[in-house]
């Protein structure tokens, strides 16, 4: 049954049901609702506007093609978010950015420079404006490697457990723990300026 009007009052699950029956209008409504979030996740991992746009578009088309596989155990947004993350990881593997960077990271991940860094403890006496704080965090994320950033994003922003990250990134739980540790320590160093500014 095609959905024509008042889509704002309709829940995602009803739109998904209609889309499963071939209703592109209902699917278009889902795109309208979640396209920003999907693009945002793609951009946060890829750090490239064109790649992020291509991947988010591909994610929507894949979601349409695989709607019959959506079982409703998670929300539609969580489901399509996972499709997007997998596409990003596939793209990074294809581009061999992972491999190129891995060569530089062997030393880091086996107890390299971050282990020698002094421990940073931010001072919570002053709060930066929320947007400014987010921009600073984003700049710091930009400066760490794809592998470290991806682990951090999947854990901190997506709330995935070690095991889930290991499956998504096709690596061991030990590697996830190690990458997450050094990503956090790098972020602590990169954001240490916030300490001087009284954050």
């Amino acid at each position: 049954m095609p959905i024509k009007n008042n889509n704002n009052e309709i829940g995602d699950s009803e739109l998904v049901d209609s889309a499963r029956h071939g209703d592109t209008v209902a699917f278009g409504e889902l795109i309208g609702r979640h396209s920003d979030k999907i693009y945002n996740r793609a951009f946060s991992i890829m750090r490239n506007r064109e790649d992020a746009l291509d991947i988010s578009q591909e994610a929507w088309i894949k979601a349409w093609q695989r709607l019959s596989q959506f079982n409703g155990r998670s929300s539609f947004l969580t489901w399509i978010n996972r499709i997007t993350i997998n596409l990003c990881l596939d793209c990074l593997r294809r581009n061999k950015r992972f491999n190129a960077e891995s060569m530089d990271q062997i030393d880091e991940e086996s107890g390299g420079v971050e282990r020698q860094l002094p421990i940073e403890t931010p001072n919570p006496t002053r709060r930066l404006e929320r947007h400014e704080l987010r921009e600073r965090i984003d700049e710091a994320l930009q400066q760490i490697s794809h592998e470290h950033r991806t682990v951090l994003i999947l854990h901190e922003f997506e709330g995935l457990e070690y095991k889930e990250i290991a499956e998504a990134m096709e690596c061991s739980i030990g590697t996830v723990m190690s990458r997450l540790f050094y990503a956090r320590r790098k972020m602590a160093v990169l954001l240490s300026g916030l300490r001087q500014e009284g954050y």
Binding site: Y39, I137, E156
Partner: peptide, 17 residues
């Protein structure tokens, strides 16, 4: 502290079109 700092502080990158 890093965990708390990152939590709920992801910058939004809206669709560029």
């Amino acid at each position: 502290s890093i965990q708390e700092l990152l939590h709920h502080n992801e910058l939004d990158h809206p669709l560029p079109e």
